[in-house]
Amino acid sequence: MTSTQSTAPADLRVGVIGVGQMGADHVTRISTRTKGARVSVVTDYLRDKAEEVPGQVPGCRVVDSPEELIAAEDVDAVLIASPGRFHKDQTIACIEHGKPVLCEKPLAMNPEDAYAVVQAEQASGKALVSLGFMRRFDAGYADLKDAITSGELGQISIVNCKHRNAHTLPGFVDSMMVYDSAVHEIDAIHYFLEEPISAVQAVLPTPGPRADEGQHDPMLLLFRTASGIIVTDELYVNTASGYEVRTEVVGSAGIATIGQDSGRVTTHLDGGRWGGSIPEDFRPRFVDAYDREVQAWVSAIADGTMIAERSATAWDGYLAAAACEAAEQALTTTGFVEVTTAERP
């Protein structure tokens, strides 16, 4: 009598580039909450920072450069959490080595470089690039997306977005409000409506008392899509109260709002107030979305599809870069600024 021995599939070996705040979170996420994956190699500009990881993740090693990590034989897939200016070259290197990559936003610092990534992926003949717009994996976002796609809300005319932070670091100028904050709503527009942004206008109210000198905070961006849908994005990055993201979709058959979850609601006797807790920053607000995003990425690689169903792609990263460039121009321009995009390969 012969016996067969089943062997469990080996965990996906993930290399992490950049182990600062986001990268360190991802290392912990993969090591403790992601099925079917482990962190095998890490690298960081600050070698001492990278050296801390093997003590927390048995079997992990440190290399000197992103190039060495990407080429390593014990790396099956790469997660990029380095500063944005390095994303283009590191993502293209992953494509050239045939390795799936999850790159934190932005894909690149300008539309031309983002388009170069799109072209590199197209030339490879493989879909390898996932982009870290984690809101796509938030339960509220997924529910709202499904309601729009199913036609439950009817014809969509207006989308209202709000993006609020407790505070920003010194030097957080208006352009950073576009590239670091509004970029998430820009991708949400593409995700929800499945059509490109055609134009953007900036409306700059009187700055609030906590705005840095020269900073227009709060700020309002108006987006117009290809079919004429208008999207408002209220950005307020120094509220001193916490981190809030809300989205309201106005349709002919219904109006839906997400982002108002506050956990326990308490009615107080001294004035009839009600309220809940507001997270200090984006990490507790979207921790579940990050978990789902990374798990979906790992699972997609395991089943051969490479890119998860809801994930942003390199093309989404290019569209976001083009819209951000137009939004930056709108900060110093009267009226709408057209968004210019190349043809999709």
Rank of each mutant, 00 (worst) to 15 (best):
T149P: 05
S130D: 04
Q260M: 07
D212F: 15
P279R: 06
P209L: 12
E185Y: 08
V27M: 06
E244R: 07
D180V: 11
D64T: 10
V19Y: 01
A182N: 15
E67K: 10
G23P: 01
D25Q: 13
I92W: 04
T4M: 15
D74H: 08
T247G: 02
W274L: 11
S175E: 14
G208E: 09
A37I: 06
R164M: 13
V53E: 01
A253P: 00
Q90F: 00
Q5G: 10
H190G: 15
V118Y: 06
A120P: 10
L79D: 00
C161S: 14
P218M: 02
T91K: 02
L220N: 13
R210C: 11
S252P: 08
D48A: 08
T332K: 12
L319Q: 08
P100N: 07
S299G: 08
A256W: 05
E185Q: 09
G171I: 12
H87P: 04
L193I: 04
P106R: 03
D64I: 09
Q155G: 12
V19K: 02
S299M: 06
G125W: 11
Y236I: 05
Q295A: 07
H216R: 12
M1K: 15
D113A: 13
A322N: 09
E280M: 05
G98L: 10
S6A: 15
T266A: 14
A308F: 00
R38Y: 01
A330H: 05
P106F: 03
V117Q: 05
Y318E: 00
I70C: 01
V173I: 14
A253Y: 03
G20L: 01
G276W: 05
G304W: 08
L12H: 06
Y45S: 09
G214I: 05
T149V: 12
A330V: 12
E68Y: 00
A314E: 02
D281V: 04
G140R: 04
H97D: 07
H87F: 04
P170M: 05
A50E: 05
A123H: 08
V203N: 15
G259V: 09
E234S: 12
V298K: 01
D64E: 14
K145F: 08
A10P: 03
T43Y: 01
T341N: 09
D180G: 13
M176L: 15
R246D: 10
E234R: 12
V173S: 04
T2P: 14
V75R: 02
V265P: 03
I80P: 02
Y179Q: 13
V178L: 11
K126S: 13
G23Q: 03
A289E: 00
R224Y: 07
H167F: 14
P170Q: 09
T206H: 13
Y318S: 04
E96D: 15
V63S: 01
A10V: 11
L153M: 05
E338K: 15
V298W: 02
R344V: 09
S6H: 11
E280F: 03
R61K: 11
Q119V: 14
E309L: 02
V75M: 06
G84Q: 02
A302L: 10
D146C: 06
R135I: 07
L221T: 06
V57Y: 10
S241E: 13
A127Y: 04
A302Y: 02
R310Q: 09
A240Y: 06
L79I: 08
K88T: 08
D281G: 10
D143M: 10
Q119G: 12
T168V: 10
V129Q: 00
L220F: 14
A123M: 12
